[in-house]
Amino acid sequence: MDGFYGGYALVGLVLLVGVSFVTVAFAANRMLRPTVPGGDKAVTYECGVDPVGEGWAQSHLRYYVFAYLYVVFAVDAIYLFPWATIFAAPGFGATTLVEMFVFLAFLSVGLLYAWRKGVLAWR
């Protein structure tokens, strides 16, 4: 289990352990539980009264702009990680630091713009 990808072999194994844990739990559950399907139990729960309309109702996604903002910022933020490992290394120093401030300034201006536009208020 050497090398960059070799390390992920154990991750795969743990994923298998997780899947088998869930499988075993449900197998035990199947043996222990009663099974009497149907009836009122299968009705959608709506505080005790019969459900009105269907569950997949239309709703107003107030935060779709937040979603856009998030995508923009998250994609930017990913670039921070590889840069973070070397920016203070010998031979980089001040120049990389200035570059970081340019990068942060772009992010901040974006956030300020959204703020000023009133996008960040929940309306």
């Binding site: 739990a25 035990a28 559950n29 222990l32 539980r33 099974t35 009497v36 139990k41 299968a42 009705v43």
Partner: peptide, 8 residues
Amino acid sequence: AQKEDLVP
């Protein structure tokens, strides 16, 4: 673990 597994 003993409860019935309900799916609406």
